[in-house]
Design a binder for these strands. Sequence first.
DNA 1: AGATGTCCCATTGTCGGACAATCCGGCACC
DNA 2: GGTGCCGGATTGTCCGACAATGGGACATCT
Lengths: 272, 272
Amino acid sequence: MSTRAKIVSRTRPRRGTASAAETGAAAVQSGGNLFDPVEREPAYMRVSAAIEGKILSRVLKDGDLLPAELDLAQQFRVHRSTVREALRQLENSGLVMRPPGAKRMVVSRPHANKIASGMRQALVLHEVSFVDVWEAMMVIEPEVAALAATRRTQADIEALLRVHQAFVAESQSAAAVTLVVEFFELLGACARNKVLVLAKHSLAQVLAPSLGLMIDRVAQARSRIMVAQQKIITALQGKDAEDARKWMAKHVRDFKRGYEVAGIPPDAVVSV
Amino acid sequence: MSTRAKIVSRTRPRRGTASAAETGAAAVQSGGNLFDPVEREPAYMRVSAAIEGKILSRVLKDGDLLPAELDLAQQFRVHRSTVREALRQLENSGLVMRPPGAKRMVVSRPHANKIASGMRQALVLHEVSFVDVWEAMMVIEPEVAALAATRRTQADIEALLRVHQAFVAESQSAAAVTLVVEFFELLGACARNKVLVLAKHSLAQVLAPSLGLMIDRVAQARSRIMVAQQKIITALQGKDAEDARKWMAKHVRDFKRGYEVAGIPPDAVVSV
DNA sequence: AGATGTCCCATTGTCGGACAATCCGGCACC
DNA sequence: GGTGCCGGATTGTCCGACAATGGGACATCT
């Protein structure tokens, strides 16, 4: 035994590291390796996985509030610090959150924003270029517009009109970009498809900063955006999917032209 | 002062709670509220934000290894537990990871898998239905196929052929689903667009489980998949974007038919 | 009654310190 | 060259402590 074992030699059970070799069957199949790598998973992982499991299987529902840290620590037979590390993971992935100015944490469904910011991080770090994002928009947005045309309600139209008019009014201010993005978001909502909304949302997030730059530099950008929005709304109003698709495609294509005119190289990577 | 202040009244600076009221300007604009909510952000948040910043701004590059926990603790003037909580956040978001069997953590770009699993969680918790996912595939996959047709290399074709043949050979086994998914992934790679690959990847992940179910239940599913893959490969080989798009659309449409035949209700929500 | 102050407790955020397990590099030994 | 042992570095986990805050319950003031 090491000489470093000072005074006390507390035989602590080392809870996190023992139980290996669980998948006894099918050992001699994976590429000739007789043994699988022994699995050593830290306790904080297991704790967070356990809680995550309860959430995903809806034993813990949206809005429920989690037991206190000490409570959890006792249930898992683990120290509070360990529980806290697990909680930080869950908090980060958006599965639990703390309403501002509250102590206990509550279970929550990750909001689109959470996913989008993760996506943005990934894209930034993978040095994705502007054309990549644009291409994705070119694929998704027109189809979303077409879907929106068939599913929009009257309330949708009115909301879109409000945002459009706000853009017309404030097209010179710095809020213009926000309004353009909001128009896209709203249009996504009309399509009534959560998956596409999520994807769109991320794209918009990533694009927004450079979009602002472009709008500032290109004189006719604002008027072209106005026209496109107008045409799209009209198409939605007439439930004309084909027109909606067409105008949205034109709208998105304009972005690229705008970037060219603004002198932003198309392979510029998106950044924070 | 509370009677609970035992013996020692360590005047600890309470690092996390002080510096409020930083945005002095523009106080009287947000809906008539004179004051912004005072910002109390826990120290572990600040630490993780600080490290995240260094990563996103590439001061810490992919592959660099992070300073030791104690080191960080000293730099941030904070306890090691606090640093560890911050690290758990970064680890969870995929910005740092630990190569199996190493001590120090290394900076890493979040892999597509990481994002996809976050996306999957979100979709599950938002009770997204199968049609939603399918609709998204209907939008994305054909366009990706078209892009792939114009950009594929000879190596791509060969890789696709290998997977296709593996599917033909093993189409009866349980590995069949994996191979179908892999075909999609590979096709995405041909399109040379990271954004679309990311989106596709998530969709495939979400769809895979129920897809397995469907293939097992529907007799002619396998042969239809074979034909579609064959046609798609041929289209890619001839760089025929239009054909690629058309066959992929057919391929994806088949999935829905398969679900109908298999008796899986189209509005069944995806699950873990 | 309603507003306000007081006291206590539960819970979180943070800290200091401790130890075992493990990885890694070096060094003697065969 | 391979092998085994040693010590430093670092992580995983624990223990225990305390301040700050939120939330009640309750008394008090008007």
